[in-house]
């Protein structure tokens, strides 16, 4: 049986569900810059195609979701994948990504006499250095996001989310650095990385 390739709106919604793993309608709407009603309609269609399942108020992807996205991405992003400028953006990101992950681990744990212990966030100068490093890395990524957004505007939503999270962090709400339950810098970064890999048909380096 031939399965229809997901049209772009369904791709965007399903992609957001897969990136977030578990998300309600409003979170998907924000990530896709679409109205709640459009997302609800798309979600119903995706449910009928057994690509998402609702667990309470949250949508989760089924086993078939990623395969459907991979097939659709190959079609929707064929031109982007041939674009040497985008290939350079992706290559640059890999280096920035490693530095971001190291900064995130340094945010969570500090080295005390060779032992890693949880950062209790009592040393404000230490935290400020890490936040400054993350700010620079996010700024570098934002320049890459601008290039990507010229090919697909949905990549612009990441810049909006980064700006908001960074403002909150700099305003003292430091949970927005790494909390897995907020739209934190780490969550946004991770979603972008996975999104980029799928868009370009690349494999994640372990």
């Amino acid at each position: 049986m031939t399965v229809a390739v997901l049209e772009k709106q369904l791709y965007d919604v399903l992609n957001a569900v897969v990136l977030k793993k578990m998300a309600d309608i409003s979170a998907i709407s924000e990530a896709t810059a679409r109205d709640d009603e459009d997302v609800k309609t798309a979600m119903e269609t995706l449910g009928e195609r057994s690509l998402v399942v609702m667990v309470g108020e949250s949508a989760m992807p089924t086993d078939e979701a990623v395969a459907a996205l991979v097939t659709a991405a190959a079609k929707h992003y064929d031109e982007v994948r041939q674009d040497t400028v985008i290939a350079q953006v992706a290559d640059k990101f890999e280096a920035v990504n490693q530095r971001f992950l190291e900064a995130m681990s340094a945010w969570q744990q500090v080295d005390v006499g060779g032992r890693k212990v949880a950062n209790d966030h009592q040393d404000s100068s230490y935290d400020a250095k890490i936040i400054d490093k993350m700010d620079k890395l996010v700024s570098r990524l934002n320049r890459q996001l601008e290039v990507l957004a010229e090919r697909d505007p949905r990549f612009g939503t990441y810049s909006t989310r980064f700006d908001r999270a960074m403002c909150l962090v700099e305003g003292g709400e430091i949970d927005y650095v790494s909390s897995p339950t907020l739209d934190s810098l780490h969550n946004i970064w991770f979603e972008f990385h996975e999104d980029l890999l799928r868009t370009l048909g690349r494999a994640r380096k372990e």
């Binding site: 992950l101 190291e102 995130m104 681990s105 969570q108 744990q109 949880a118 790494s178 909390s179 897995p180 780490h186 991770f190 372990e206």
Partner: peptide, 16 residues
């Protein structure tokens, strides 16, 4: 069975 403590899952495990 693979992966480093600096990976996404490592970061999440510390958060949770």
């Amino acid at each position: 069975m693979s992966g480093a403590p600096e990976s996404h899952l490592g970061i999440l495990s510390r958060e949770f």
